[in-house]
Amino acid sequence: MQILIVEDEELAVKKLQKTLLSVSAVANIAGVTDSIKSTVEWLQENQQPDLILMDIELADGQSFEIFNLTEVKSPVIFTTSYDEYALKAFKVNSVDYLLKPIQKEELQAALNKFQKIQSNNTAADINIDVLVKQLQQKLQPKEYRKRFLVKHGQKLVSVEIDEIAYFYSDGRLNFFKTTDNRKFVVDYTMDELEEMLEPEKYFRISRSFYVSIASIDKIDDYFGNRLILQLKPAVDKEALVSREKVTDFKKWMGK
């Protein structure tokens, strides 16, 4: 089994080579590259390997760029330090991953998987470019809203997100209040706001409220295993933390 290693840390390369040879009698290191540029050149100048072990973070960028610059027909195992929960959906036929530091048993299992794929000739049925693009999107940091454009009389004004104390709904319209007690209508549903607001800064305490930590003046117990918040500036409706949100709200407040 011809294997290309894409890794920019010399020590990691040596460890990976040693582990590979210890778990597979048929593994042969066809080449080692340490950058996007050198990997693209290697793939264009050599026969496609049976398998590629590819670090996601290389010195000249994320290795996903390789797939934009040349055709990759080989199955790939990404090596990464990313959280396994962000990547678990991508353990599919032509894309796999191993968390660093790479464990011998996990590498053995991954090699066994690809040998099975090879013998069944199923790798060709998988569109690796599509899968890699999905993986790249999954790992890219999400962009959250930095400001909102809202009506103020006959004018439009831009309000920075750091100026907003909380968002709430009265059942008909959705609003936000700023830290200096200005109130604006916002033209998004509460569910749409959930995709826009950074979860470190805003928490959805109920179907009709998002609050920032800075807006919480006091927290009291409330009947029905709920909590009631006193917000600043004051709000003209009860800010209740729903029963199913209480545990997560306490964790959020304690970060």
Rank of each mutant, 00 (worst) to 15 (best):
D8I: 09
T19L: 14
S22T: 13
A25R: 08
A27Y: 09
G31C: 14
V32Q: 04
D34H: 09
L43R: 13
N46R: 08
L51A: 11
I56H: 02
D60L: 02
F64V: 03
T70E: 14
E71V: 14
K73A: 13
S74E: 09
T80F: 04
D83W: 04
Y85R: 14
A86T: 01
F90M: 11
N93A: 10
S94L: 14
I102Y: 02
E105A: 15
A109Y: 13
N112M: 12
K113Q: 15
S119V: 11
S119D: 11
N120K: 14
A124D: 13
N127P: 10
V132W: 03
Q136T: 01
Q140H: 06
F148W: 13
L149A: 13
K155N: 12
V159G: 07
I161S: 13
F167G: 07
R172M: 08
R172L: 10
L173F: 13
F175G: 06
K183N: 12
T189A: 12
T189H: 04
L193T: 05
P199W: 01
F203A: 05
R204N: 02
I205S: 15
Y210H: 02
A214Q: 11
K218C: 05
L227F: 08
K232N: 12
E238F: 13
F249D: 03
K250E: 09
M253K: 11
G254T: 12
